[in-house]
């Protein structure tokens, strides 16, 4: 790895030359170094990816994929893929995805998707990446929208026939949307 030795200008101001990599001077952070190695030069090795899918969904919903589903469609899917761990009505003790309505400001707050989560987009993002727990990332986009809709319906946030897609889901107003202080 001869290029590894060539990443810094040493304290005498000598620059090692490397043939294989392009160097970028990191002047903005030069004061942030450990020791006195001098100005850091970093190789620019980042490549343009061929295929890269953006799976991170934020409240603006911009990363939501095309597709749709309603709670009515989601019910059977939920029963076969989710109910074993979360209960038929989402209230499996110790693993609830529903319940706790109106409890957050009380003496015994009970945090669930419905009572606590500020954004409905989070539910889509999380089911798509992490559920069902025993078969992650196995649901299609339409199935994910439908199950998301069903969990929202279990929490009485939307109606059975409301269709969730990249336009409607970000507009769902969650009961505890105003319950958070942003930054300390």
């Amino acid at each position: 790895m001869f290029t590894r030795n060539c990443l810094v200008v040493n304290h005498l101001g000598r620059v090692c030359l490397a043939l294989l990599v392009t160097f970028v001077v990191n002047q903005a952070h030069a004061g942030n170094n450990q020791g006195n190695l001098g100005v850091h030069l970093t190789p620019a090795l980042g490549q343009t990816p061929n295929l890269h899918i953006d799976n991170i969904v934020s409240p603006d919903g911009l990363a939501l994929p095309d597709g749709s589903g309603s709670a009515a469609e989601g019910k059977t899917l939920y029963i076969s893929a989710c109910a074993s761990c979360h209960g038929m009505s989402g209230m499996q003790p110790g693993n609830e995805v529903a319940g706790g309505k109106g409890s957050i400001g009380t003496d015994s707050p009970f945090k669930t998707v419905g009572s606590y989560w500020p954004y409905a987009t989070t539910l889509y993002d999380y089911i798509a990446r992490a559920m069902p727990y025993d078969k992650q990332k196995s649901l299609t986009v339409d199935e994910t929208y439908a199950i998301t809709a069903y969990v929202l319906e279990l929490n009485q946030i939307i109606k059975k026939d409301d269709v969730m897609d990249k336009h409607t889901l970000p507009k769902v107003v969650m009961p505890n949307a105003d319950g958070f202080n942003e930054l300390n």
Partner: peptide, 25 residues
């Protein structure tokens, strides 16, 4: 903006007595 992921909303947020929770603390 932040992504408001499951772990920073459902889990790692700090609820106060008044019912408001700190996020990104």
């Amino acid at each position: 903006t932040a992504a408001y992921t499951k772990d920073e909303t459902s889990k790692y947020s700090d609820l106060h007595v008044d019912g408001k929770a700190d996020m990104f603390s």
